[in-house]
């Protein structure tokens, strides 16, 4: 017989790890759902990768923080920093990417990319040989190398939707993020895709992705816990006392001079 004790606290304790293992099962099922999601023409084009473990998530969070300080525009700086915290608070991350958007367009002239009834907008802006796009050139001037086939990118939305639906049906809090996807892609998660989205998964009494206070990268729970650790040791050195022989809570009898007996 086995006893599995499960608790969300403290992080990465055996009790929390048991919970994380449950989340990993859900993450795998989410990927199944992503793969069976509707797609344009039923064409396969999605890939997935799961990040699991303290160090794995920490590296993603750090890449997001690097992007926040070095690369993304001012408007995205705080969202990237906040979501890096959320990565650390997550139990697992599911990455979903579309392999086709940047390399094998749908070639139907839908109009989404350039507003024209052909695919000229994409092909005129990329290196290709008779319509075979050369994706070996991975140099980027922007976060994402564009243009991409927008209807293929649209397919990625369905994969995300089905994955989130499975998470929701299992009452696991989930959040799909640009920041997480970009950092993951830079770290070679879903390495065949140019556009990658990261889905954070968290099981906790409080949804870790909602009710976000200002400056969350400085005010989050981990920082609060650390603040306790940083101050408690210092303060305990002041009210120290020889506890074997003395209890400051005990009232002392005093005579009328105020002198202790």
């Amino acid at each position: 017989m086995t006893r599995i004790h499960i608790d969300e606290w403290p992080p990465y304790s055996p009790a929390d790890q048991a919970k994380k293992d449950n989340v990993l099962i859900a993450a795998k099922l989410m990927v199944n759902a992503a793969l069976t999601a509707p797609s344009t023409g039923g064409v396969p084009g999605q890939e997935a990768e799961i990040a699991y473990g303290q160090k794995e998530l920490e590296l993603i969070a750090r890449e997001m923080e690097r992007l926040a300080h070095e690369q993304v525009i001012e408007r995205l700086k705080k969202p990237f920093l906040y979501e890096a915290v959320m990565v650390r608070e997550s139990d697992a991350v599911v990455f979903l990417g579309n392999k086709r958007a940047h390399e094998t367009p749908m070639d139907v002239g839908c109009g989404l990319c350039g507003g024209e009834p052909n695919c000229s907008f994409v092909y005129e802006r990329l290196n290709h040989y008779n319509g075979l796009i050369d994706a070996t050139d991975r140099r980027r001037e922007t976060a994402i190398r564009g243009p991409v086939c927008v209807i293929r990118a649209h397919d990625l939305g369905y994969a995300i939707g089905s994955a989130l639906w499975v998470a929701g049906n299992n009452f696991i809090d989930a959040k799909s993020c640009y920041s997480v996807g970009l950092a993951g892609r830079n770290l070679d998660f879903c390495m065949n895709s140019e556009i990658v989205v990261g889905i954070l998964l968290g099981v906790a009494s409080k949804n870790p992705y909602a009710d976000t206070p200002p400056n969350y990268h400085l005010t989050n729970l981990a920082k609060q816990v650390d603040a306790v650790r940083k101050i408690t040791t210092i303060t305990r050195q002041i009210p120290n006392h020889p506890y074997h022989t003395f209890d400051p809570a005990k009232k002392k009898k005093t005579d009328n001079t105020g002198k202790e007996e």
């Binding site: 839908c110 109009g111 989404l112 350039g114 507003g115 009834p117 927008v150 990118a153 556009i195």
Partner: peptide, 11 residues
Amino acid sequence: VGVGCYGPSCV
């Protein structure tokens, strides 16, 4: 407009 959508679009 293309075959069935307006564009360009935000990806």
